[in-house]
Design a protein around this nucleic acid. Structure first.
Lengths: 341, 341
DNA sequence: CTGTTAGCGCGTTCAG
DNA sequence: CTGAACGCGCTAACAG
């Protein structure tokens, strides 16, 4: 019996009602007599009816799909955001369609094109590569967009961590341990948040009465290997830093390797603080002190804002999330004789 | 100018042709005069036409969407599979819809229901929780399914790594370093691949003339913490193992912690081998020796098989992928005095 | 409360 | 080579 998957019409016939009634009970769109409803439900059950989301979307002009733009699903930072967004979306009967920039060799707008063709109802932009021009283009599409940790003021809705405060937490922690020469490995050029964190770093130094040394700030790092090289360079300096604040945990790991290669130890010789608080932080040796970013919650909030907009409710334009410092084994007091030169 | 996103009808009118012609040039479905085609293309360009994937899917009975069932996107093992599948799907104009079991609090079949409602054209099942009953249910749906590292013989198409060989590689390596008491932390009960790897472990021991000691095989481990506890127990044994072969890298990391807690060192006192070859393996201390599983390629292959089936081509029922051993710093020769008791 | 009917946007015969 | 018309499966008025 090659019974195709049943349509709404099949259910209607089987329950001896019109397709409109079936639709009504399927969506709870209008009142239906208890008895007819029961009949319909039984028919749906018997036939194993599954509403056709595409057809429904065509009629409703709602795909019940959220687009989520990320840079790389292999990066735990993004993976957690995805998780959070999916959790929230799921609870509202929505599905999220991933646009992973690293999957496409071509330009990133092809990615967006794919999502828009799919008629996603809204878009969450978490990709860290969003240039201003790109952002403007996105914003001009007529679907709601909410941006996570992106450029400020480019999108109608945004959720951000307080980058400055996060950087400040790191620097203050290191300073409290006696460190005065604190290096900073910043984000890749083009990553919108790098300026914010750098600003926080500088502000904290200033407030603590520490001098800002440009030679201790390394930019242009785009990989763990890059970070390794950058830190190797720093450690070779005449006035080498005794502490390193990395833009994220992955680059902190690159720093780990460089410190080891230099025959030094963490935290005895060099303290390291990362940013993100990934799961692996607890398992690396020594465990990595890091600025925690509630990524999953941020994904959830972004989805929440989007769903609110879609529901016609008013939604906050900017949600700022609080960072916190998770102190582990990679930071320690600066030893008196630690300045090697 | 609140110009809505244009429909095929708008393009047709603007190019002074019928929608049928627009459809033809959009899909290359039939020959069209060069001149008319040019007119149509210009109109599409001018209006910024984007075909409506839902409507197209409704008419074609093809959603151009692949469903991908996984256990947890936060687990790098699955993330890489996703990546591979997406890459392949993308190149064919398909999109992949993620069904993440850890997102749903409810039963897993709700997950499948969501995907089927979306009318995915095919399904890749990579979730490690697939029970036999569940598999049977999935297979009974009338869409093609390909399974990654799942139970054998349950699905029409499968791609697997050679689990036995992988386990054998690990055991042979350890044995070659002089280890005779090699423990195995197996997969969680219900994970279909655990039996295979366990079998490989036992077969290798036998071939090497080593005795099989049931007390060195720990089952029921489902988390890094579990693994930690299991290994702690092993190390407390009168005849403690000098080497540990873990079901996956995450649990190997749990073993790391237990070894440290016991005041022992890796690899001096205990050697550890993992399975998967995750990125972090290179960054943990010492770097983890692991059986490499080409996860991304497996995802790609799975998508490939699925697309072939969808294209009506014949596709291989079973693709077996080769594992390889990546030797790093966590394995070393067994010291003569290593047996502590 | 329920059935009829007209689209949603597009692919696809079938004539011309 | 091109256009008119129907149908994909479902929702949303509009009558009844």
């Amino acid at each position: 019996m090659a019974t195709r998957t049943p349509r709404i019409y099949d259910v209607a016939r089987s329950a001896r009602v019109s397709i409109a009634t079936v639709s009504r009970v399927a969506n709870g769109t209008a009142r239906v007599y208890e008895r007819t409803e029961a009949r319909v439900r039984r028919a749906m059950e018997r036939l194993g009816y599954r509403p056709h989301a595409l057809a429904r979307g065509l009629a409703t002009r709602r795909s019940h799909t959220l687009g989520l733009l990320i840079t790389d699903i292999l990066d735990p930072y993004f993976a957690e955001i995805v998780r959070g967004a999916q959790e929230r979306a799921e609870s509202a009967g929505y599905v999220v369609l991933l646009g992973d920039a690293s999957v496409h060799t071509s330009a990133e707008d092809l990615l967006v094109k794919r999502l828009l063709e799919r008629r996603v109802d809204g878009l969450i932009v978490a990709s860290s590569r969003t240039t201003d021009a790109y952002a403007a283009q996105l914003a001009s599409e007529d679907i709601p967009v909410v941006c996570i940790n992106g450029p400020l003021g480019q999108f109608a809705h945004a959720v951000q961590i307080d980058h400055r405060k996060g950087a400040r937490l790191a620097v203050e922690h290191l300073a409290s341990l006696g460190h005065t020469r604190i290096a900073h490995i910043t984000g890749a050029v083009g990553v919108p948040t790098r300026q914010e964190r750098l600003a926080g770093y500088r502000a904290a130094l200033k407030d603590l009465g520490l001098s800002y040394d440009p030679s201790l700030v390394i930019a242009g790092v785009t990989s763990i290997a890059d970070s390794h090289d950058a830190v190797a360079g720093l450690l070779g300096l005449a006035a080498a830093p005794t502490a390193i604040f990395a833009f994220n945990d992955r680059w902190a790991i690159g720093a780990y390797a460089a410190v080891r290669d230099a025959g030094l130890r963490i935290p005895a010789d060099v303290s390291v603080v990362g940013f993100d608080d990934l799961e692996m932080d607890e398992w690396v040796q020594p465990a990595l002190t890091s600025v925690r970013q509630p990524r999953r919650e941020m994904g959830r909030i972004a989805a929440d804002v989007l769903l609110a907009v879609l529901a016609g409710e008013s939604a906050s334009e900017l949600v700022v999330v609080e960072p916190s410092l998770v102190i582990r084994g990679s930071t320690g007091t600066r030893r008196a004789h630690a300045d090697r030169h």
